[in-house]
Computed example of a mutant assay.
Amino acid sequence: MDSDGLLFNQSELENAIETGELIAWKKQRYLEFRKTMRETRYPCHFAVQAERTDSARYLFAGDARNRDALLKVREGLRQYLERYQSIAKRTTLVIFFEPTTEDQSEQEYRDQFWRVLELLNRQDPEPWPSDVPDDPNDPEWEFCFSGEPMFIVGRAPFYTDRKSRYTPYGLEITIQPRRTLDDISGDTMEGQRARSVIRDRLTDYDDVEPHPDIGDYGDPSTREWKQYLLPTSNEEGLSEFPFEIDTE
């Protein structure tokens, strides 16, 4: 674990499980994630490799409805972005939220997801990067924090057919800094091969066709934020970004 006690690597988590130091909900969340990455043909090759090569970092945030949990996400993400380039070329931050004792609706999970991003934006320690558009309707836009553009994926229990986005115990957010993907963008041969593999696996893995909003960053027809927390149905989609971006 890092010196501030927020970020874990894989070996630290496994040691904490063996010694009984990891409390029950954290153990449950991590073991389910590890099982998905190791024992299935989970479609995202990069996420699987990050877990298998110990280049992922893990943050347990608490209840997503709790402001203290959101502030923990802010601090953990800030710490991760300070050091991610020293971890590996490809690295991922996985944020687990504590399961609730009652069932939650899809809308409740959606509200929590966007509240996380809104708090991060409102309490960003750095101004919005000058080389990234601040309008979410620009195809070159993506979410930024602490001066770093990043790709974000939300997973939640309401995804029964879209299994690549399903996790049984609560909200989960994974974050990849854009710099870790620069050399495999959609206009490179390696990037095109990787995306072809992911799309083929996605078709096999999910019980629903890939959502029409899934696309490559920078594609004029694509808006990256629409992919963050996909709708359950391919007939649905977000029409507007859920909050106003603060660029100061």
Rank of each mutant, 00 (worst) to 15 (best):
I175T: 02
R195W: 08
P168A: 00
D204N: 15
G170M: 05
S196W: 11
L171E: 02
T180V: 11
F158T: 06
D187Y: 12
D207E: 14
F151G: 02
Y166P: 04
Y166E: 03
T188A: 08
L181T: 08
Q176E: 02
P212N: 07
P157A: 10
D207C: 10
M150A: 04
T188N: 08
R201S: 09
P168R: 01
R195V: 07
R162S: 12
D182Y: 11
D187L: 13
V197G: 01
R162Y: 13
S164Q: 07
Q192E: 11
S164I: 08
S164R: 02
P210G: 03
I198A: 01
T167K: 02
E148A: 12
D206Y: 13
L171A: 05
V153I: 08
T203R: 13
P168N: 00
E148L: 08
I152S: 04
R199L: 12
D204Y: 15
D213N: 14
P210W: 03
S221W: 09
T188F: 14
P210M: 01
S185G: 13
G186L: 10
S221K: 15
F158A: 06
R201Q: 13
T188S: 15
V197Y: 13
G170C: 02
I214G: 05
R165L: 09
R179L: 11
A156E: 14
D204Q: 14
T188C: 09
Y169C: 03
D206N: 10
D187K: 12
I152L: 05
I198H: 01
R162L: 11
S221A: 15
I198C: 01
P220E: 05
L202N: 02
P220F: 04
V197P: 06
G215F: 04
I173M: 07
F151S: 02
D161M: 13
I173V: 10
Y205Q: 00
H211A: 07
I184R: 15
L202A: 10
D161S: 12
G170L: 03
D182V: 09
Q192H: 06
D207Y: 12
I173L: 08
I214T: 07
P220D: 05
D187R: 15
L202F: 08
G218S: 06
K163R: 15
P149I: 04
G154W: 02
G170W: 05
T174F: 06
E148T: 14
G218D: 12
T180Y: 04
E209T: 08
T203K: 13
P157V: 06
D200T: 14
P212F: 05
P212T: 06
R155W: 09
R162N: 12
S196Q: 15
D182C: 12
R165Q: 12
Q192M: 09
Q192S: 08
G191P: 08
G170S: 02
E172C: 03
P168H: 03
I184G: 09
D187S: 13
D207R: 12
R201P: 04
Y205M: 07
V208Y: 12
V153D: 03
P157I: 09
D213G: 07
L181V: 05
D200P: 09
E190M: 13
T180D: 04
G154C: 14
D204W: 15
T167C: 00
A194Q: 11
D187N: 15
G215V: 00
I198R: 00
D219H: 03
D219E: 06
D219V: 04
S164H: 05
A156Y: 06
